[in-house]
Design a protein around this nucleic acid. Structure first.
Length: 256
DNA sequence: ATGGTTGTGTTACAA
């Protein structure tokens, strides 16, 4: 079972890239972020034609998350449980083939300090609470998406430049580590314990050509899911194409 | 350097 996460930066602008990726990579589950459209505007028909069930949580202009799945989508949950007052469309969760899967788009949080950074930290606190609940259920689960967190300096091409960036701030990193300390596994680091491997490159300044990137898209696995993890990779190919998203897909394979 | 990307949706804001 291949599960991929991809911040597409507008599903409307990215539809040709997404459709060719579904053909080429053929994920069993695709978790998309930054749809930038309401549910009614999601290109449901084009994606269903590729053989996917679809669940979306959209919003006008900003944010928006979706789950695409070859298998039926069960027990759909819209929004982060316990954070019902959040009006931004940043979380969707469902069960697919007996695996609980959360698709998240964490707030960017810049500039720091400020209201946006406070919102990011509050959002992460609620995510930790949700992760604790899922851990207690002892089921196979994955929390994947655009975390907007560089876990360590090695996940950033220029840590000094990002010293005060919300992606690298100690407050963001400590909350990310809280998730790991609950027993969650960073699927990517299971196979590549160290090194510069990025999932986002800014559109500006030739960042992609210079490999000036950051690793901020993650798949975190519960112990029961990590037990059956067989692969995890960053697929750089989509980032090199015309009209690319600024993020590239990250995927893992479970023996399920 | 007086620059600089992309997307949304109207001309500023978010990333």
């Amino acid at each position: 079972m291949k599960i991929a996460t991809w911040n597409v930066n507008s599903i409307k602008a990215r539809l040709p890239r997404v459709l060719e990726w579904l053909d080429d990579f053929s994920p069993d589950v695709a978790l998309l972020q930054e749809l930038k459209c309401v549910d009614e505007a999601f290109p449901r028909m084009e994606i269903a034609e590729k053989g996917y069930h679809i669940a979306t949580h959209g919003q006008k202009t900003y944010n928006g998350v979706a789950i695409l799945s070859k298998d039926p989508i069960e027990d759909l949950q819209i929004g982060l449980p316990g954070f019902e007052e959040d009006i931004q469309a940043r979380y969707i969760e469902a069960t697919i083939r007996n695996v609980r899967i959360g698709c998240l788009y964490l707030p960017n949080g810049n500039p720091t300090p400020g209201e946006k950074f406070d919102y990011k930290l509050r959002w992460m606190d609620h995510l930790v609470v949700r992760a604790k609940e899922l851990i207690a259920s002892e089921q196979k689960f994955i929390l994947a998406g655009d975390y907007n967190v560089c876990p360590k300096d090695e996940d950033c091409y220029n840590p000094a430049l990002f010293k005060d960036d919300a992606l690298c701030r100690p407050e963001s990193r400590s909350r990310y580590r809280q998730l790991l300390n609950l027993g969650l596994t960073d699927a990517f680091r299971t196979f590549k314990p160290s090194g510069p491997d990025y999932s986002f490159w800014d559109y500006q300044g030739g960042a992609w050509q210079k490999d000036n990137g950051v690793r901020i898209d993650h798949l975190l696995l519960s112990p029961q899911a990590a037990d059956i993890l067989v692969a995890c990779e960053i697929d750089r190919k989509p980032r090199g194409k015309q009209k690319a998203s600024d993020h590239t897909p990250v995927w893992c394979q479970l023996a399920a």
